[in-house]
C-alpha cells in the first residue's frame, strides 16, 4: 500500500512512527483480505442495502432550519455569520 498516497487522500497527517507502524499492520490486514479474491462472485449482485427499497423520498415542502447562531455555535472560528478558513484557492 502506498501509505502516503492514501493518507493524503484521507487527509490525515501521520507521525513518522504511525506511518511505519501502519505500513506493517495494514500490510498484514491486506494479506488477510486476500481471502476475498478467492471467492467466486461471478454473476452475484452486490448488496448495497440489507433490505433494499425504491423511491424513499419526501415532498418538496420546506421547513425552517437553524439560525446562523445555531449553525455556527460549534464552529472553531467564525466572522460575519460565516465560517473562517485559511485562504483557499480553487482546487
Amino acid at each position: 500500500m502506498d501509505i502516503d498516497y492514501v493518507a493524503n487522500l484521507a487527509r490525515i497527517e501521520l507521525t513518522p512512527e504511525e506511518r511505519k507502524k501502519f505500513q506493517g499492520q495494514l500490510g498484514d490486514v491486506l494479506v488477510y483480505f486476500e481471502k476475498l479474491q478467492e471467492v467466486n462472485v461471478e454473476g452475484v449482485t452486490p448488496t448495497a442495502h440489507a433490505f433494499p427499497r425504491f423511491n424513499v423520498w419526501d415532498e418538496d415542502e420546506p421547513t425552517t432550519g437553524f439560525t446562523s447562531d445555531e449553525a455556527l455555535k460549534n464552529a472553531p472560528k467564525s466572522r460575519n455569520d460565516q465560517i473562517v478558513v485559511p485562504k483557499v484557492i480553487e482546487e
Binding site: 419526501d58 421547513t63 446562523s68 449553525a71
Partner: peptide, 29 residues
C-alpha cells in the same frame, strides 16, 4: 430546509446541510 438566494449567511441550514454527526439525507421527489 428552504432553498433561496440572497438570504443572510448560514440561515438555510440544518443538521443535514451542515453534515452534523448523525444527520441523514432523504431525497426530494
Amino acid at each position: 430546509v428552504s432553498t433561496g438566494f440572497g438570504k443572510s449567511p448560514n440561515t438555510l441550514t440544518n443538521p443535514v446541510v451542515l453534515g452534523l454527526p448523525g444527520a441523514l439525507p432523504v431525497m426530494n421527489r
